[in-house]
């Protein structure tokens, strides 16, 4: 026992100073030999500690922001490119109209006729008369279907 502590105890309690100073506890055999292994088994490898959870969180947020920024930039650039391209390269409606012959126009209207109302076709004032030579064959059932779609007064008007 250190002299300073011994002297203090001697003054306080000579009885305690005379007591045997032994650890009166049992410890398993070889306990201290294996303790460091047991502790090291419970901790992850050291290199995983280099990045703290705060750093990982910050990295994740920064990465997400960068990814979001890149994605937004790509969408904006693609949108702008597409928009500017459609303006400069597509022909105007007048150019298209001049390039289409009346015959082509009539054929187009005939193909898409289901999409037009009678009023619109009347406004266009297009001559839909066709010679019987042009009509190779019209099935009776098909003709009935077309006629059924018209009201009587509409047929009278035509």
């Amino acid at each position: 026992m250190k002299e300073e502590i011994k002297k203090e105890l001697e003054e306080l309690s000579p009885f305690l100073l005379d007591l045997p100073k032994t650890e009166n506890y049992d410890v398993p055999f070889n306990y201290f030999e294996s303790l460091s292994d047991k502790v090291l088994e419970k901790v992850p490898p050291r290199n995983e500690h280099k990045i703290s959870w705060v750093d990982r969180l910050v990295n994740l947020v920064v990465k997400k922001r960068i990814a979001f920024g890149i994605a937004t930039s790509i969408i904006l650039i693609a949108g702008f490119w597409s928009f500017s391209r459609s303006d400069s390269h597509l022909p105007s409606y007048e150019t298209i109209a001049n390039e289409i012959t009346p015959q082509e126009f009539k054929e187009y209207i005939a193909e898409e006729i289901d999409d037009y109302s009678i009023e619109v076709l009347q406004e266009l004032d297009i001559d839909f008369s066709v010679s019987f030579d042009e009509i190779e064959s019209i099935e009776d059932e098909f003709l009935d279907e077309i006629l059924d779609e018209f009201e009587d007064y509409e047929l009278e008007q035509i």
Partner: peptide
């Protein structure tokens, strides 16, 4: 008892391992 002391001493050194920096 030893079991309690063992738990505490292991927790102590785990904290030391993680917090030495």
């Amino acid at each position: 008892n030893h079991e309690d002391a063992n738990d505490i001493v292991q927790n102590t050194f785990i904290k030391v391992y993680k917090g030495i920096n």
